[in-house]
Design a protein around this nucleic acid. Sequence first.
DNA 1: TGAATTTGATAACAAATGTTATTGCTGTTG
DNA 2: CAACAGCAATAACATTTGTTATCAAATTCA
Lengths: 192, 192
Amino acid sequence: MFEQLKDRFSLNERQWKKYVSCFKRIQVPAKTTLLKEGEISRKVFFIEKGCARVWFNNDGKDVTFQFFFENDRVSSTESFKKNIPSIVTIETIEPCTLFIISKNDMDRIMNDCFEIPELRAKFIDVLYDRNIHYMKHCLSFIRDTPQQRYLNLLKEKPQIIKRIPQHYIASYLGITSVHLSRIKGKLAKEKK
Amino acid sequence: MFEQLKDRFSLNERQWKKYVSCFKRIQVPAKTTLLKEGEISRKVFFIEKGCARVWFNNDGKDVTFQFFFENDRVSSTESFKKNIPSIVTIETIEPCTLFIISKNDMDRIMNDCFEIPELRAKFIDVLYDRNIHYMKHCLSFIRDTPQQRYLNLLKEKPQIIKRIPQHYIASYLGITSVHLSRIKGKLAKEKK
DNA sequence: TGAATTTGATAACAAATGTTATTGCTGTTG
DNA sequence: CAACAGCAATAACATTTGTTATCAAATTCA
C-alpha cells in the first residue's frame, strides 16, 4: 500500500526498507485542518485517497490557491523549507487517507537522494517543471478571461470541476462564485 | 568587469579562469530581439547594463510577462531547459551591455557546480525561491486589485515604474494602459 | 425522518475595467 | 526645421465583474 511512495522516490529495495518506517498512514474526515496559518510546517503529506486545498485568509475572505488529489504531495513549501510561519492553511475537502512524514525524516531522505546523480537530476527537473507550471499559471491571469480560465481548467484538470465545490473553484480562478455561475450558465446556453 | 558573473557562480580563482572564456560581452541597441518566439533558446544572457523584457504574442496583442535589469539572468527557462521552441520573445528595452554564454558551456559549468555540495544546495535554494516568487505573483492576481498590484510594484520594484514605458507595465499588471493611467490619476488626486 | 447547513442559480443594481478615439507632448530622424 | 513615431492623459461609451439578496435543491447530521 506504500507503492506510490516507493515509486515517487525511485528507491531500490534496500533503501526502501530503510525509509518506509518514516511514514505514518492516517485517515481524517473532510474539512480537517492539516496545517494552520501561522504555524510552522514540520510535516509533508502524501494523499493516498481524497483531496485537499491550500487557502489563505484575505481580509476575512477565504481564497483558495491550490487543489491536491491522489498521489499529490502537499505542504507549505515556503514554511517547510525556511522554517517560518505559514501564510496558508491546508485543509482536506473530502475524507482523506494520508501518509505523513516529518521534516527531519524527509530532509534525511532528500540528502541521501542527492548523493545519487540520477535522483538529483530528477529532483531538479521537478523543481524546474514546477517553476514552469507556476509561470504559466501567472500567465493565464494576465492573458485569459475568467471564462477562458474556466474552460482551460475543464479541459486540463476536469477532476477539479467534478470533485470540488464551486465556490472554491471560483476563488481559485480569481472570480466570485456568482460570476462563475454566470459563466457556466452562458456556456450551457451557447451549447444548445 | 566580469565580477558580477564570478560572484554569481561563487567560484574560486582556478575554476573562474577555466570558465571566464565561455562568456562573450556584447552591446546592443534598444528594442533588440535576443530570442524570438518559435526559436529554441541556446543562450543565456546576463545583463551588465540596461533592461529587457519577456513578452508573448496573444492574438496579436503584445503581453509583457517579466522585466530584467542589471545583474539579472535572462533566458526562456522552458525552451532552454527542454530544447523546445520558445513561446516568448526576449527584447531589450534600453540599450544593453550583455554577457552571453552558450547552452553547452552553461551546462558544463552547472554540472561542475553540482559536484560541490554547497553550490548545489545554493542552486536548489535559488530554484525554491523562484518557485515561491512565482507562487506569490500568482497569488497577487487572485487576491489583489489592479490598483493594489500597482502600489505593490511601486513599493517593491520602483525601478520598473521609473524605467519602463507605461504600456508595458500595464500588460504586466494584467490591465490596459488606459486603466493604468486612470489608476495613477486617481492616486494622484487622493494624495492631494 | 426532519432540521440545519451547504451549495448553486438567478436577478437587480453598482463598480470596475475595456474599447475607441482624440489630443498633446516628447524625442528621433531625415 | 519639419515630419513622424512613440507615449501618456482623457473622455464617452460598452462590457465585464462584483455585491447583495433571495430561492431551491442537495447534503449532512442529530
